[in-house]
């Protein structure tokens, strides 16, 4: 009993496509996250630059990374659900 998953998944034809999308989205986010770290280490003074609304680049970029994660997540869910609908017609939805 302990070796069974909580719920068995059906066949998912969209799995490969979703995995590829996930990897792409991961690298897109990594680019911006890595950019923040790189600016901090290589060009620290740039973080002090005033950007907008009276806040510096550090605050703007940090909050931006949080917001971007949420937006990317929503887009990912939307695309994955569409792939599943398109590719799993006639299959038990997983």
């Amino acid at each position: 009993m302990l070796h069974k998953p909580a719920i068995e998944s059906g066949i998912d034809n969209a799995a490969k496509r979703k995995a590829r999308l996930g990897v792409w989205f991961f690298f897109i986010y990594l680019f911006f996250y890595g950019g923040f770290v790189a600016i901090g280490v290589l060009n620290y003074e740039l973080l002090a630059t005033q950007v907008t609304l009276g806040v510096n680049l550090a605050v703007f970029y940090g909050m931006g990374l949080i917001l971007f994660a949420v937006l990317l997540g929503i887009l990912y869910n939307f695309l994955c659900s569409r792939y599943e609908d398109e590719m799993n017609e006639g299959e038990a939805k997983s």
């Binding site: 998953p5 909580a6 996930g22 989205f25 994660a69 990317l72 994955c80």
Partner: peptide, 16 residues
């Protein structure tokens, strides 16, 4: 969470 969602969540669920 991005790593968890984009790289791990779905494949791990299938390994469930």
């Amino acid at each position: 969470w991005i790593v968890a969602l984009f790289l791990i969540a779905e494949p791990m669920k299938r390994l469930g």
